[in-house]
């Protein structure tokens, strides 16, 4: 069992958990993810290791409620424990060979982006960060990024904070003035990573995206996380989850995400009626 030592609400529907997992904390690196099964009947849910503390023996996850399973995780409280956590999975991200990088996050993407920024800065890179969200209250970890970044830009869809509009607007402005960067790292909704990749392609600027495909095992055994990268089929869990944004077939990924839409509705229906199912599931 993996005990929750701390829980914070970061924004509406977004929660941060610090979980006791000394063996995982000892091995975690920026870019790794974990798979969590909250209770016996739950799905296996992939989540990025957003931070870790080797001395305390803890790892951090940030979870957004988007459907039943993520809500189920977010219903857990301090002192309770998740049933299964397997990690570290995926490949750590290379952060050593960069001098100047732009890091872009959309919404929840800020959480998985954070360990990458931290690692880049640890390795001496100068990082410019662009954080985007629908509205001000949905921004997460702004202070953490402010501490690490050379420059921090904020964009919200409704203009409630920072520039009004998408992160790509800010990125475009930055690049049109100065495109002497080594790379862009973008994490967020598929559509946002696609927009960033399309933009940076014009500047011939290396772009790394991190894909949140559907997954089951996370060790290369099912192929459910297939993604076409540069005409080749890759498995996001073992070949990624980070890939060259200019090579990823985003359209295919967007279609694949819709695979279980009907089932998602069915789960919601199954749990409407308040039979205390969710409590029971624990």
């Amino acid at each position: 069992m993996y005990e929750i030592v701390e829980k914070n609400k970061l924004a509406p529907e977004i929660f941060h958990f610090e979980v006791k997992a000394p063996e995982i904390a000892a091995k975690a690196q920026a870019g790794h993810f974990l798979i969590l099964r909250a209770v016996e009947k739950a799905e296996r849910i992939p989540l990025t290791i957003a931070d870790y503390d080797r001395e305390q023996g803890t790892i951090d996850i940030v979870v957004q409620e988007v459907g039943y399973s993520s809500q189920q995780i977010c219903d857990f409280e301090e002192g309770e424990a998740f049933l299964d956590v397997v990690a570290p999975l995926g490949n750590p991200i290379e952060t050593e060979d960069y001098d100047r990088v732009i890091c872009v996050a959309g919404g929840l993407g800020a959480a998985p982006l954070y360990p990458k920024v931290k690692s880049l800065v640890d390795h001496g890179a100068e990082v410019t960060t662009i954080l985007g969200a629908q509205r001000a209250e949905k921004l997460i970890w702004e202070d953490r990024f402010a501490d690490l970044s050379e420059d921090l830009y904020i964009a919200t869809d409704d203009g409630s904070r920072g520039t009004e509009g998408f992160v790509t607007n800010v990125l475009e402005e930055l690049l049109s003035e100065d495109n002497d960067y080594d790379a862009v790292i973008a994490i967020g909704p598929m559509i946002m990573m696609q927009a960033v990749s399309d933009l940076t392609a014009e500047y011939d600027l290396k772009t790394i995206v991190s894909l949140n495909t559907l997954m089951v095992d996370g060790t290369g055994m099912c192929g459910g996380c297939r993604v076409t990268v540069g005409e080749e089929t890759k498995f996001a869990c073992v070949d990624g989850p980070a890939f060259d944004g200019h090579e990823v077939d985003f359209e295919e990924q967007r279609r694949r995400k819709k695979f279980y839409e009907e089932h998602e509705e069915e789960i919601e229906e199954h749990h409407v009626g308040g039979e205390g199912c969710r409590v029971q599931a624990k």
Partner: peptide, 17 residues
């Protein structure tokens, strides 16, 4: 794996579709 290990044949009691 979905059906056997994750028991999708008992969906939606088990949550894996």
């Amino acid at each position: 794996t979905r059906v056997n290990l994750m028991k999708a044949y008992k969906f939606p009691e088990y949550k894996t579709p």
